[in-house]
């Protein structure tokens, strides 16, 4: 189904929060999914799969144990949202070292928007590579080389970020996204957890009406 990017972002933020992520990480998940959707990638489906996999589990289990050496998580399946956010926070470190590597990351495509964020901060293209995939971005455009199946891998053994990166072709974002109804509904189930059940009291008190509008 055809959606505005704003709708995709709003739904993903609520769904990520509903799956137990902090508000700050939910914002990252939403912005990232919006970014992927604008390049025609199935961001909403991938996010739904990741959120269901780690539903309400402790984030520390899927976070990098340390921001040095090769990043890995104690669970052996690092969250691309937590690792990606940390990568974006470490943009300067990436610039200094030229390369940051990670092990066993789930849904690696969800890392790419964070590389875009780092590229914007560094004003230099950043590349993300895993088996069969080379993606490079300056934050605004994308160079994508890989097999369709490899983009949507559920787990990557090794992921490498590097900068400066080469962009041999440049894909422009579009201003419309799409998400299959099935993925949208799955996100909706998670998002629904963030809505307070309707009660008569909240209907009257919570929004403060109660005066007649027939005047």
């Amino acid at each position: 189904m055809n959606h505005s990017l704003n709708e995709i972002e709003a739904m993903c933020k609520r769904a990520a929060r509903g799956a137990g992520l902090s508000w700050g990480l939910a914002e990252e998940a939403a912005k990232g999914t919006r970014w992927l959707s604008s390049f025609g990638f199935p961001g909403a489906e991938l996010l739904a799969a990741l959120l269901e996999l780690n539903d309400r589990l402790p984030p520390a289990d899927f976070a990098p144990s340390a921001l040095t050496g090769v990043w890995s998580a104690p669970s052996g399946r690092m969250s691309p949202l937590i690792a990606g956010a940390a990568l974006s926070d470490c943009a300067v470190q990436l610039m200094d070292a030229g390369r940051i590597e990670m092990e066993r990351v789930c849904v690696p495509l969800l890392l790419v928007p964070f590389a875009a964020g780092a590229a914007l901060r560094l004003e230099t293209p950043v590349a993300v590579e895993w088996a069969g995939v080379y993606l490079a971005t300056d934050g605004r455009q994308l160079c994508a080389r890989g097999a369709p199946d490899a983009y949507t891998a559920m787990l990557a053994d090794k992921v490498a970020f590097s900068t400066p990166a080469e962009m041999t072709d440049r894909r422009e974002p579009v201003l419309r996204g799409s998400a299959p109804a099935e993925a949208w509904d799955r996100l909706g189930v998670l998002a629904h957890r963030t809505y307070a059940p309707a009660t008569e009291a909240s209907r009257l008190r919570g929004a403060g009406a109660g005066l007649s509008d027939n005047d």
Binding site: L21, S22, W23, E27, A86
Partner: peptide, 9 residues
């Protein structure tokens, strides 16, 4: 923030 994602926002 790596240890305290709850303050990211």
């Amino acid at each position: 923030l790596l240890r305290h994602p709850e303050y990211r926002h």
